[in-house]
Deep mutational scan, measured.
Amino acid sequence: TEDEKKIQELLKRANGDVSKAEKLAQSQGNEELARRLREYANK
């Protein structure tokens, strides 16, 4: 999905570090994506 692409892109930029990727999403003002990242990471 589009969200998964965004999540994978963020994870790439954060070198696979979920908490960093989450902070990136939040810094972009994207709380929804940050929440999805957390769920994605907890799979």
Rank of each mutant, 00 (worst) to 15 (best):
N15Y: 07
Q26C: 15
E4V: 12
K5Q: 11
T1M: 12
A21G: 02
E22T: 08
R35Y: 02
E4W: 15
L33V: 04
E2A: 11
V18Q: 03
A14V: 09
K6I: 13
N15T: 03
K23D: 06
E2G: 09
R38H: 14
L33S: 01
E9L: 04
L24H: 05
K20A: 13
E39N: 03
L11F: 00
D17Y: 02
K43H: 10
Y40E: 07
G29E: 04
A14Y: 09
E31G: 08
G16K: 01
D17K: 02
D17C: 11
K5H: 09
A41N: 08
Y40A: 07
R13S: 12
S19E: 13
E39G: 01
K12T: 10
L10W: 05
Q28E: 15
Q28M: 15
R13E: 15
A21C: 07
E9P: 00
R38E: 05
A14E: 03
Q28D: 13
L33M: 07
A34R: 04
E4R: 09
V18Y: 14
Q28A: 11
I7T: 02
Q8G: 05
E9T: 02
D17S: 06
K20Y: 12
E39I: 02
R36Q: 12
E2V: 11
R35D: 05
E32I: 06
E4P: 04
L24A: 05
L11E: 02
T1P: 12
E31V: 09
R35S: 07
K6V: 13
A25I: 04
L11P: 02
K6H: 09
A21N: 00
E39K: 03
R35P: 01
A34G: 05
N42K: 14
R13G: 08
T1V: 12
A14G: 03
I7C: 09
K23V: 07
E4G: 06
E39Y: 02
A41P: 06
L33G: 00
A25Y: 00
E32C: 07
K12H: 11
N30M: 14
L11S: 01
D3G: 07
L10M: 07
E39A: 04
R13T: 11
N30H: 09
K23H: 10
L37G: 00
S19Y: 10
E9N: 05
